[in-house]
Amino acid sequence: MLILLPPSEGKTAAAAGEPFKPDELHFPELTAARREVLSALAQVSSSPEALAHLGVGASLAAEVQRNTRLQDEPSAPAHTVYSGVLYDALGYRGMTPAQKRKADDAVVVISALWGAIGFADRIPAYRLSMSVGLPETGKLASYWKRHLPAALDAHAEGHLLVDCRSSSYAAAWAPAPERTVVVNVFQERDGKRTVVSHFAKHTRGELARHLLTRRGKAPGTPAALLKAAQEQWTAELVPGTGRKPHALNIILAG
């Protein structure tokens, strides 16, 4: 089982530590592409129009300025740098050592800056969204869509993929649909279902934690994933097609 996560918008910067080392990140096939994005991001972030180009407000000016020196910034494991609703619900810090090792092996974060990284890879905090376009790369979702298959297709072979990504990050890589399950979260009230954004992030984090901390064998099929989810939630499985992944729908009471 592999769990695909998006990064968090906000990042927790490391207070101290060595800069990241490109050759120690997972998926070395992406090293050249990462270098290109790092260079383009540093150039954009040093321009007078940096905030507008990156789609952020003046309150994030310091984070944008940090983008110009990422190769010298302190780094920390990705599970520490990424924060926010989903990562709080996943609760890596409160896991046992064995559960943390399982998470380090199973979680892959799809990133606008790095393409894809392992959960324990050491990275600096940065500010960049997959929806942004950079002068040297164009739209990042399209850029990574050209590069990620060479790095991730073989890594995903033989695994069930639990896809907890948001739509912009899902656009960057489409794994084989027959072994991929997209996680959707709905709220049901008076028989009517609605999509929920905040609770979706939280629930996806909770699902990831449940899969990483529950006893027994990790689910290897969509049906096994449904059974695991039903240990905690009301859930249903919508079978995929030859071109469309399966969908796990988690239903929250209104």
Rank of each mutant, 00 (worst) to 15 (best):
A33W: 11
R35E: 13
R35A: 15
R35W: 08
V37C: 02
V37L: 04
V37Q: 04
L38Y: 11
S39D: 08
S39N: 02
A40M: 01
A40P: 03
A40H: 03
L41F: 05
A42G: 01
A42T: 00
V44F: 10
S45G: 00
S45F: 02
S46A: 15
S46Y: 04
S47F: 09
P48E: 05
E49P: 00
E49W: 03
E49I: 00
E49T: 06
A50H: 11
A52L: 07
H53A: 15
L54D: 11
V56G: 11
A58I: 09
S59W: 13
S59L: 15
S59V: 13
L60W: 02
A61I: 05
A61H: 09
A61S: 12
A61T: 11
E63M: 06
V64C: 05
Q65E: 14
Q65K: 15
N67P: 05
T68F: 07
L70D: 03
L70R: 00
Q71T: 07
Q71W: 06
D72L: 05
E73K: 11
E73Y: 08
E73C: 14
P74F: 15
P74G: 15
P74C: 14
P74E: 15
S75R: 04
S75C: 14
A78H: 01
A78M: 05
A78T: 02
H79L: 09
H79D: 10
V81W: 01
V81F: 05
Y82E: 05
Y82L: 07
S83Q: 03
S83D: 05
G84D: 08
G84V: 09
G84I: 08
G84L: 08
V85W: 08
V85A: 07
L86R: 00
Y87A: 00
A89G: 10
L90Y: 09
L90H: 03
G91E: 05
Y92G: 01
Y92Q: 09
R93L: 12
G94M: 05
G94A: 10
G94H: 13
M95F: 12
T96M: 13
A98M: 11
Q99P: 00
Q99R: 02
Q99M: 09
K100H: 06
K102S: 14
A103S: 11
A103G: 01
D104N: 15
D104E: 15
D104F: 13
D105I: 02
D105V: 09
D105R: 14
D105C: 04
A106T: 11
A106L: 05
V108P: 02
V108D: 01
V108S: 00
V108G: 02
V109P: 06
V109L: 10
I110C: 10
I110N: 03
I110H: 07
I110Y: 02
S111N: 14
A112G: 15
L113I: 14
L113S: 07
G115Q: 04
A116C: 11
A116K: 06
G118W: 00
F119D: 02
F119R: 01
D121G: 07
D121T: 11
D121E: 10
R122N: 06
R122I: 02
R122A: 12
I123K: 01
A125H: 09
A125F: 08
A125I: 11
Y126S: 06
Y126F: 11
R127N: 01
R127I: 01
L128G: 04
S129K: 13
S129C: 00
M130H: 12
S131K: 14
S131H: 08
S131E: 12
V132I: 09
P135K: 10
E136R: 08
T137G: 10
